[in-house]
């Protein structure tokens, strides 16, 4: 039902390189991603796998040394990579919003909360710039929506007077005040305690559901992804390796990396021996030519080291980038690979 709509965001074959001392870091490696209106997606992966780089490229806020080497990003009819700067600003302030990982760093310490929220409303063009009263009402409304106690008082506070959870609520209020239809949340709860995390996640979920917003949630925790997302995309070393509906991905992971990741997560059922994944992320300066997971994969065979695997559709919208799902690969190799485990 969702699939028939046009995606609000379409990323095709995205390549991003970073200029570093001694050459280029080939970070994002041909990434494809579609987000449909109202859909909640979780990008899951370990540190350094390119999650943040990917979403930063959507907002065009990559650092100077990053270069988009190929591909296209189309957001709501706008070609984000070839757009005039003032048009880009227009898109950014009316249609997108982002919540960052560290609320302390993303709020300005020398302005009051009220000033900062009012500004974002003022420049989004949602209220008349001169109508201070309307702007203030909207700001208070935004704080109220985020279940902040006593919003009038909070408006006059500085960020340092609030706790971490409160600050993150302010950031969410700011992101939602502009009533955009697309939101990116970059590890919004990593710095918070689990009870506060629970509150903040439920808040994001409820508010985005209410406004029928699309959400890209970046996280490294499968548990958080399960709470929030309709669909989970697992990233490894600059590419999405598996993409499936939340339930299906967690119950039946197919890519060896996803399987390894699931086996490393301590479970509440208890007494399981955690296996982990040997080795570490390959260097982006000289990435392996074939599948980037081949250096750590327990199932790797010849073709894995030669060419990057394409996406194989295994039904029900479940896509896996792994040669084990290629029909032309002989059964014997697959069985051998599995028995090596």
């Amino acid at each position: 039902m969702v699939e028939q709509k046009q995606p609000i965001l379409r990323i095709e074959d995205l390549y991003i390189n970073y200029k570093v001392y001694g050459g280029y870091s080939y970070v994002i490696d041909g990434l494809n991603l579609n987000v449909f209106p109202g859909e909640k997606i979780a990008l899951v992966g370990e540190s350094g796998c390119g999650k943040t780089t990917t979403v930063k490229s959507i907002l065009r806020v990559l650092p100077k040394q990053a270069k988009i080497a190929g591909g296209s990003i189309v957001f709501d009819g706008h070609d984000v990579l070839n757009i005039k700067p003032n048009e880009l600003n227009e898109v950014r302030r009316r249609k997108m919003s982002m919540i960052f990982q560290d609320p302390t760093a993303s709020l300005n310490p020398v302005f009051t909360i009220g000033k900062q929220i009012s500004d974002s409303i003022k420049y989004s063009g949602l209220a008349d710039r001169k109508d201070k009263k309307a702007i203030k009402e909207r700001a208070i409304q935004a704080l109220n929506d985020c279940s902040m106690p006593d919003p009038e008082r909070i408006m006059g506070n500085y960020p340092f007077q609030l706790s971490g959870g409160m600050r993150q609520r302010v950031c969410i209020a700011m992101a939602l005040a502009t009533a955009s239809k697309f939101m990116i949340a970059d590890e919004p709860t990593t710095n918070l305690d689990v009870t506060i995390q629970d509150q903040v996640l439920k808040l994001i979920r409820n508010l985005t559901d209410e406004k029928d917003m699309s959400l890209i949630l970046i996280t490294h925790s499968m548990g958080v992804a399960r709470m929030m997302a309709d669909r989970i995309c697992v990233m490894y070393a600059g590419n999405i390796v598996e993409n499936a509906k939340t339930e299906e991905l967690l119950e039946k992971p197919q890519h060896p990396y996803t399987v390894g990741l699931m086996n490393s997560i301590p479970k509440l059922t208890g007494d399981s021996i955690l296996s982990g994944i040997p080795g570490r992320l390959p260097s982006y300066l000289t990435p392996p030519p074939g599948c980037r997971f081949s250096t750590r994969c327990p199932h790797a065979f010849d073709s894995c080291f030669v060419k990057k695997p394409p996406f194989y559709d295994i039904g029900n919208g479940h896509q896996v980038a792994c040669y084990l799902h290629d029909k032309s690969v002989p059964q014997s190799i697959k069985e051998e690979a599995v028995s090596n485990e």
Binding site: V194, T195, Q197, D198, L201, S221, M222, G223, V224, R226, M227, L250, E251, M262, I265, K267, L268, T269
Partner: peptide
């Protein structure tokens, strides 16, 4: 409160909370 706010990955775990 603490145990029920742990984000878990499997349904079996959810049932234990």
């Amino acid at each position: 409160m603490l145990v029920s706010s742990i984000p878990v990955v499997l349904q079996e775990e959810e049932d234990l909370k």
